[in-house]
Simulated assay, not measured.
Amino acid sequence: MNEHNIAEIRNLAGLATPMALRVAVTLGLPDRLRGDGAAVERVATDLGVSPVALGLLLGHLAALGIVERAPTGYRTTDYGATLCSDADNGLTNFLHLDMAGGRAEMAFVELLHSITTGEAGYSRRYGRDFWADLARHPHLRESFDRQMTHRFRDQIPRLVAGYDWDRFSTIVDVGGGHGTLLAAILAANPRVRGHLVDLEPTATEAGRTFSAHQVEDRVQVTARSFFDPLPEGAQAYLLCDILHDWDDEHAHRILARCVAAVHPAGRVLVVEPVGGRHDNTEFDLAMLVIFGGRERRVDEFRTLASAHGLVLDTVIDLTDQRCLLEFRLAGTG
């Protein structure tokens, strides 16, 4: 019996540390214990939690190096400051149990259900699917929008520079969120006009993004679901990190809306991780358990699109995480 392997697998499978980090962030402990720190009893009183239980949690966080013992009780280490709310690294949203990212991660407790049925575990855990949950709880939608904006932030320069966006006079960003990508495309290509479609209040925030980038005179914003008819006649319909959030049935509905609206000589552009190229196995499981989606492979995209008369022209590696798949209508060049 290999004791090292047993210990390693036990460490991989253990839930104590992942949950301790999530609870620490949810309670705001890294922020509260900055500087000189504070005594367990004082923090417990402020938070309305059990001092004995909080002491156990802080003891484990100290073993992880997130906090350290101090004359005053416990204080956040430089390492632990990575979990502070102002660290601007996306971890708070990913771990906080009452933000979109952290809440969604807890759907992994339903992974067996997802593997058995091929369906999302999120609705089984929370009684409604991810998108209905966002609609019901505005603070979740707000945190989700922030999460998406943060996730793209560092990749936007390469997404913009890696493709000839200037070939299109008009681009509709379908489900474009706060508009950070479309704003960057328009800023870099002064001849291009844009149109963003997303739900409220996301659409309103996108308008502010376009104003901040001084491109508001070349862009429209429509507050609408992408399951409804899209603005017609544009030369390009951009789906960035959209299709992997949906099962095939809903992905077909989204593509059908794009095909119904696109100019006959236009393009449907899909930007997202692609299975076998830039996918991540953990993220792949997350797409399944949260949304019932997945990171599709090139041949799966080709099959999905062909049902709508779309032909895959090219696949471009834009970043180390995302590809661009360019589709045209069959019979056009």
Rank of each mutant, 00 (worst) to 15 (best):
S306L: 03
R277L: 15
L324A: 09
I6G: 11
I290D: 00
G175Q: 03
T45N: 07
L33Q: 02
R224M: 08
E249T: 14
G65P: 03
I185Y: 00
Q155F: 06
A307F: 06
C84N: 06
R151E: 07
E3I: 09
T116A: 15
L112C: 05
E8T: 15
L312N: 10
I6S: 10
M1Y: 11
G48R: 05
N280K: 10
I171Y: 00
R328I: 10
D166T: 12
A305E: 01
S169N: 09
Y126P: 02
D164E: 11
T92N: 09
G179T: 01
G59S: 11
L15K: 12
H308S: 08
R124G: 01
P138T: 07
E205N: 08
G121W: 02
N189K: 08
F94V: 13
A188S: 13
V109H: 11
V274H: 02
L238C: 01
G59R: 12
L182S: 01
V271S: 05
A286H: 06
W246V: 08
Q147R: 14
G293H: 05
R302T: 15
R294C: 14
T314R: 11
G101F: 08
N89Y: 11
V197Y: 00
A38F: 06
E232P: 02
G28H: 08
D129C: 13
L15E: 12
E3M: 08
L134I: 01
G333C: 05
A188H: 07
H244D: 07
A223H: 02
R297E: 15
D86L: 02
P231W: 13
A62G: 10
A305H: 08
D98V: 14
G292C: 04
A70F: 03
I115C: 08
I316E: 13
L182H: 02
C240L: 13
A13P: 00
A161H: 14
M148I: 13
V262Y: 04
L134T: 01
T117K: 12
R302P: 01
V268D: 04
A81N: 03
D86T: 09
T319K: 04
R191K: 13
E272L: 02
L97C: 09
G194P: 04
P229H: 02
T314N: 12
